[in-house]
Amino acid sequence: MGGARTAGDMVMRLQLDKKMKINEAKAYVAEKLGVTLEELVDVVTMSELREDLGIGLAHVEPCAEANMGMEAKFKIAEILDIKINSVEKFKKRAGIK
C-alpha cells in the first residue's frame, strides 16, 4: 500500500492490533487522520500530512526536522489510539510514564 509513503504502515498496524480486515482498517486510519480513503493512499497528500503530524516519512530530507523511527511511533500510537509494543518497551526502559 506504500508503507510510510502513504499510510500502509498504519493500516497494517490495525490489522495486527485489532484484526481488522483491509477496508475496516483503512476506514479507521482515514478517520483518525481526517482524510478520505482516496487521500489515504495518495503519496502527495500523505507525505505532507505525515510531515505535519510527525508520524514518519519514507523521504526524510531534511532529516533534522523529520520525525522517524521511535519518535514517529510515539505519535502514531497517540493518533491511532493504539498501543505500540516498541513504544511501550521504550517508555518503560527510559522511565517515561
Partner: peptide, 10 residues
C-alpha cells in the same frame, strides 16, 4: 531500505 526505499508496509 524496505521502509524508505521499497515502500513496504511491514
Amino acid at each position: 531500505i524496505h521502509e524508505r526505499v521499497l515502500g513496504a508496509d511491514s
